[in-house]
Design a protein around this nucleic acid. Sequence first.
RNA 1: GCGGACGUGGCGGAACUGGUAGACGCGCAGCGUUGAGGUCGCUGUCCUCGCAAGAGGGUGGAAGUUCGAGUCUUCUCGUCCGCACCA
Length: 863
Amino acid sequence: MGSKRQEGSMTRYNFKESEARWQKKWQEKKSFEVSEDKTRPKYYVLEMFPYPSGRIHMGHVRNYTLGDLVARYKRAKGFNVLHPMGWDAFGLPAENAALANNIAPDEWTKQNIDTMRNQLKSMGLSYDWTREFATCSPDYYAHEQKMFIDFINAGLAYRKKSWVNWDPQEKTVLANEQVIDGRGWRSGVQVEKKELTQWFLKITEYADDLLNSVKALDGWPERVRVMQENWIGRSEGMRIKFELAGREDYIEVFTTRADTLFGASFCALSAHHPLSRQLAEKSPGLAAFIVECDRLGTSEAAIETAEKQGFDTGLRVEHPLKKGSFLPVYVANFVLMEYGTGAIFGCPAHDQRDLDFARKYDLSVVPVVAPKHADAETFEVFAEAYTGEGVHINSGFLDGKKTVEALDLVKKKLEALKIGTHEINYRLRDWGISRQRYWGCPIPIINCDGCGPVTVPEDQLPVKLPEDISFEKAGNPLKNHPTWQHVKCPVCKKPAFRETDTFDTFFESSWYFARFCSPHSSRGLEKDAVDHWMPVDQYIGGIEHAVLHLLYSRFFTRALQRCGYVNVKEPFENLMTQGMICHETYQNSDGVWLLPEEVKKGKHGKFISAHDGSIVKKGRSEKMSKSKKNVVDPEVIIGEYGADTARLFMLSDSPPDRDLDWTEAGIEGAWRYINRLWRMVSEPKIPLGAKGALAPKNLTKDMKTIQRAVHQTIYNVGEDLEKFRFNKAIARVRELTNKLDAMTGEDVGAPWMYTVGIETVIRLIAPIIPHIAEEMWQELGHATLVTETAWPDYDKLMLVENTVVVGIQVNGKIRGTVELPTDCDQATAEKIGLTLGPVMAAIGAKKIRKIIFVANRILNVVV
RNA sequence: GCGGACGUGGCGGAACUGGUAGACGCGCAGCGUUGAGGUCGCUGUCCUCGCAAGAGGGUGGAAGUUCGAGUCUUCUCGUCCGCACCA
């Protein structure tokens, strides 16, 4: 592609030639290859590795630009930086491609990796490529199989039955995303529920630890911590027995508000509660209601907004603390079987859902907690439940007690009566890791009729995926393979079957960060290397992984620690989550989505189709997605503007954690700046001084101002980079660039000052736009690489200005500004400030009542 | 419904512990360069009034604390994200 950006003026920076040349140079010099070096501090920066889906997208470009900036900056600051890249290579899309295009998942994946590796390399990212690996390689997953066996032996893995979505036509298990409106996405047939025996990892054993530790991860964004806390969902409460009237058995409920027990007016069971099922057998009405409940779906938003509904079972329970008082038992659509005991007691006065339910079925609403300032005698609940703390009323022995005290008293009472126990519940469930798929790591288990599940002996690992598979028959290719699963039991030697399930692909991504420390060792994780590099100092990736990947990795690291693989329990010391890339959307008059490249600006700023000139409707900026076609291909951008321009734009407009609007104007702006920099070096208005020359003695005042700006910029950019305020760092470099460009060259020492200024700009901007930085560095006469040059130092004395501009206010309103010596006293400030015309005018004949003076900032006259 | 985040020019965004709101960039306008377009350079650009000096208004809205609020407090409106009825 002969880029249009390359035509015209000779002064135009030739990025094509330059970027390729420097990438080759870095490779030749092995600039980014690292080994353990005890003499320097280590720094491990990692970006979430990609799934090789085919081509890189803008999200990747942003993610890896952010990581590369951090890596290059830390290198310049003297750290020994580990910055690796690999491929999260197992997954469903490879199997879909196999079905659609008749290509082996293995081959499809490898082709994609080759394409994407080339794309990443064209970005000039400072990876140690010698550490690259793909998780679909047996060299990788062999160790994962060993870990799983160790987990079994450590009591961290077990089997149990659980439900899956089953497509009866394709004879395959469907992921949630493959179920659309209750039907298989390809077959379109009604999905069934099927119970399968599957493997689980005991993440719940670490629920408390994962919860408590996440609170201490202060290098993580607050919102990710909150999301994990909510996901784990610890709640402390009581399990209470309610005796069923006229029956021998009882219902157990879980509650966090046992103090409101005296306000109970009903009990409710989940539709999946064993008692509900049992009763449904004899009650067609209840059975129909349960079917109705299932139809609601499982999403919270759907259920929340749905009307509360129940079915009166006719059963009654006796109130545990009010003998002779009986409550109705309902089956209700808002009670979850998965949480607590699958049954609740309803206290309408103090729970909004219970209140809605009670109003609908005309159940009593008895307030038992009165807010602090309410009149306990007359306090009533109408449309809104009172969920806060307060003083107990209508509660027998709890009357007059405060919430905390009441909770304690009722707990003691129920425990004494042996009808209640203190209990802690978690929302977190164990991690199901079995997948009924081909393109994943085989689970190293042999199922024997006599011996049960037996682990594959270590000397037979890895259990490799067979390559001679067929996707023609419905179902899992591993199960259809003629010979693969037929083996002898390692224990009794009788014929047995291999496990045909493979691991959840979150398994691979739960330890890859450790594998990068010793990526090619046949022994797997080398302790010395892992101990040296772990934990990851800075992890960078999308917010979409806030819960699952990050939580699984934290658990997995703990499990590895328990089995002696690693010495840390938290894998990621600091986490940065990047925002999404957005772009305007375009639709033609038929409502068909158009790619940005199919749209151009017509007259009057309206958008028109590039094909036929018809009017195009511009929609607001949304997350780039294939479905809305508002995508821009990074390869096209890099081909047209170069990697540096793309990198610069990715960092310059928005802070990393916020969404970024991709605009043509924005990328043009970045491109202009790059060319301006290049011109300032290749055709300098001021002759460039000799490199390394000492400062001339008699710098003029203007030159001293520039000199101070250079030092201030070094300081400020460093601060901004440390705090990930990359957009500000770039703004500051541009400010300095503007100042240097405005120099006239007449002053004594100007060539020296200009040269020092340009060198500083190059060194500060090098982690962001490394190729042109090298090109300019060379142009200045350096034989070294700027990539291997230390971060510039600043002189603290240069940060302080001689004078500051101070605002003069009258009654808090700015009436003028004066330039004052830095740190001058109030008297001096008043002497100059109060004589300003507008200030005097504003004061007029009024009497000065008070003067507030903040040194170097403000002088405020109150009249 | 619950939880979280965010509201600043035409746009993306700056503004340290409360102390000159709008850095930097984009866009736009005028001028210069150019055969023309683009590039490039210069100047201007929060809004209103004014030739100008200047005056008044201004950080979604309302109130409050303060000499002083984009920043702190309360209420309110709107947008976005997440979801698991968490008892």
